[in-house]
């Protein structure tokens, strides 16, 4: 079973990701699935064949306004990063949390770096699925090195944004 980082911990992942070209797949009982948007829409809105409502896989440059209803329905949204240099997904994640008020699990996958972990989590991603085991191990090491001590920053995060000096005043 593949492992992911969830809420800062390495956990087993029991969701199965279906790729774009598996259009004719039939869901097995007792399995949880993540479907690309097109496949997801085929089963929408009843998902009768599914044991549990499937998660939704979106590319990072998706126009969220076009998938409003899917966002409200999906228990889990996975944003696919095509390249670690392409930061569109950081805005997509922030918008999902901030504007679309998405409360489910928000997962980043694809070409992401362990070094982007802090930024991703501050943009609302509570789960990270790395493309290879080395990256996962590196991320784990980095979490351990931090020992729960959250890195200090000026902006807060998407859940609790702040202006730079705000936290200094609240201390006084």
């Amino acid at each position: 079973m593949q492992q992911i980082i969830k809420n800062g911990q390495v956990v087993n992942d029991d969701w199965y990701l279906i790729s774009d070209n598996e259009t004719d797949f039939i869901p097995l009982e007792c399995k949880k699935y993540i479907l690309p948007l097109a496949v997801w829409m085929e089963f929408y809105p009843h998902f009768t064949l599914f044991h549990e409502k499937p998660g939704l896989l979106l590319s990072s440059e998706i126009d969220l306004n076009q998938v409003r209803s899917a966002i409200t329905e999906a228990p889990l949204i996975v944003i696919f990063f095509a390249s670690f240099m392409d930061g569109t997904g950081f805005s997509t994640g922030s918008l999902l949390r901030e504007t679309f008020n998405f409360k489910g699990e928000l997962r980043a996958t694809g070409e992401i770096l362990p070094d982007q972990m802090d930024y991703l989590s501050r943009c609302g991603f509570d789960a990270l699925s790395f493309a290879d085991l080395n990256a996962l191990r590196q991320a784990e090491k980095m979490i351990q090195a931090r020992e729960g001590d959250k890195a200090k920053n000026y902006q807060g995060d998407v859940q609790m944004p702040r202006t730079p000096f705000q936290q200094r005043f609240s201390k006084v």
Binding site: G87, F90, Q116, D118, Y119, C123, N153, Y154, Q155, P164
Partner: peptide, 16 residues
């Protein structure tokens, strides 16, 4: 200075 702080390590805008 306010912009300097706000833009430093901003999580959303580090990979523009």
């Amino acid at each position: 200075e306010i912009i300097r702080q706000w833009s430093s390590l901003h999580p959303e805008f580090a990979f523009l």
